[in-house]
Design a protein around this nucleic acid. Structure first.
Length: 419
RNA sequence: GUGGGUGUAGCUCAGGUGGUAGAGCGACAGGUUGUGGCCCUGUUGGCCGCGGGUUCAAGUCCCGUCACUCACCCCA
């Protein structure tokens, strides 16, 4: 028996409605905020991710599905979507259409990690980006919008954490200070942290080893105390805009993110309903990415949210309404009736109604049971008796009432009755 | 890559100290010569993850292996 690949999922008919429901609310909401959808290929040249996300990040250095094509070009199944979207933005000169571009997307991503609760090798994200504004109102709109989408979906207990990791200059200045303050304590850190001090010191804050956090708490200066005037001003404005939009948040000066392109604002939203992987979305500002990928320098900010995790939360809190179907089930007895039924079904379907026909030539009793199981609201019964009388029966499955209808006007009468 | 947990029917799970498998739900059919849900009856359905070992005898004990899952790491 063939099995699905580790870390992938089949979305079965019984759960597909949840996806459709959630996708609909999200895209309607984003369209209302005047974002436009963009779809990019599932794979890109490997270099794009190395350049965009950063060669030392975990995502790039150990989680990518990378393979050579027949021309020996190294390709990679996209592990994130910001770099591809930016690539498309640059390649298609979208900046020429308007100075500010608002894009949203939706699709599968691939990372070869060990699967666990809330973490798959193929997973789905939706996200959106505002490209072309350096101002705090863009940061605030992204955070406010994603927060509103969750609220609209019926999620309440979320916690929003925000931070600023500064622009490049002030961050580099801070990193020098951080490094020199921590150097004397280097032997007290865990092994990975000791490596990180040299390679990517900011990531120390991600470490979950208690003793490491202890040292940081006691000795590490806060990045927020080392922002330059403009960065600090920017961060203040983001916060007051969030206040103005009634978005609750807390400042977390240890929130750094695992992708190298972030500048200034970073944020994350978590839910207690998830497992150890509790982030439902993450994002921030990336003012140098477009330039790094070969475009003209353009500031931008965006967010990406995990669909599977979102659905976990929604199921946990039973926030997805039942699917409503208005099914007409045609119960048929005998060969003559079958043709008549097929004809009526075709007409009803062409008028936009949902119609099911029995394919097993079963007894009426079995067909009725089937109709009940499928939650049909109406059953049309056509048998030899009805054919002889030029009539059909229409039964209301909710009330149990049924009435005879003239065969010649069957479709019209059915349509009129059930709407 | 490292650790823990779990693999028995389509699904959820029982199966003290070894004696070649059970329940509930589901599916199908009948109880009603042409009427669903509730109820009753019956039928269907299992290389007990796989391989090896111990034993007269292994779902049960031992070894190995694979899969799933949770956690670390990292992130959505």
């Amino acid at each position: 028996m063939y099995r699905r690949i580790k870390g992938t999922k089949d979305i079965l008919p019984g759960e597909i409605y949840q996806w459709q429901h959630v996708e609909k609310i999200i895209s309607e909401r984003l369209e209302r905020n005047n974002y436009q959808e963009i779809r990019t290929p599932l794979f890109e040249v490997t270099e794009l991710f190395i350049r965009g996300v950063g060669p030392d990040t975990d995502v790039v250095s150990k989680e990518m599905y990378t393979f050579p094509d027949k021309g020996n070009t190294s390709l990679t199944l996209r592990p994130e979507l910001t770099a591809p979207v930016v690539r498309a933005f640059i390649q298609n000169n979208l900046s020429q259409i308007s100075p500010v571009t608002k894009l949203y997307y939706f699709g599968p991503l691939f990372r070869q990690e060990r699967p666990q609760k809330g973490r798959l090798r193929q997973f789905t994200q939706f996200g959106f980006e505002i490209i072309g504004s350096e101002h705090p109102e863009a940061d605030a709109e992204v955070i406010q919008t994603i927060y509103d989408i969750y609220k609209e979906l019926g999620i309440n207990d979320l916690s929003v954490r925000i931070n600023s990791i500064g622009s490049l200059d002030s961050r580099n200045h801070y990193l020098r200070i951080l490094k020199s303050t921590l150097k004397p304590h280097i032997n007290d850190f865990c092994n990975t942290c000791q490596e990180r001090i040299e390679k990517n010191i900011l990531r120390l804050f991600d470490c979950k080893v208690e003793s490491c956090q202890h040292i940081l708490d006691r000795h590490a200066p806060s990045i927020l105390d080392h922002l330059d005037t403009e960065d600090a001003q920017h961060f203040e404005e983001v916060k007051s805009l969030l206040d103005a939009a009634y978005v609750p948040y807390e400042v977390d000066n240890k929130l750094v993110r695992g992708l190298d392109y972030y500048t200034r604002t970073t944020f994350e939203i978590t839910s207690s309903l998830l497992g150890a992987q509790d982030a439902i979305c993450g994002g921030g500002r990336y003012d140098h990415l477009i330039e790094d990928l070969g475009g003209v320098p353009t500031p931008a900010v965006g967010v990406a949210s995990g669909m599977e995790r979102l659905l976990m939360i929604l199921n946990e809190s039973q926030a997805i309404p039942e699917k409503e179907i208005n099914l007409i089930y045609m119960a048929v007895l005998g060969n003559n009736a079958r043709q008549v039924a097929f004809n009526i079904a075709t007409t009803l379907r062409s008028r936009g109604l949902r119609v099911e026909l029995d394919f097993l030539r079963r007894s009426l009793r079995a067909q009725m049971r089937d109709a009940g199981k499928k939650q049909a609201r109406w059953v049309v019964i056509i048998g030899e008796d009805e054919i002889h009388k030029d009539k059909i029966l229409l039964k209301n499955m909710t009330t149990g009432e049924q009435k005879e209808i003239q065969l010649s006007q069957a479709a019209d009468q059915i349509e009129a009755t059930i709407i």
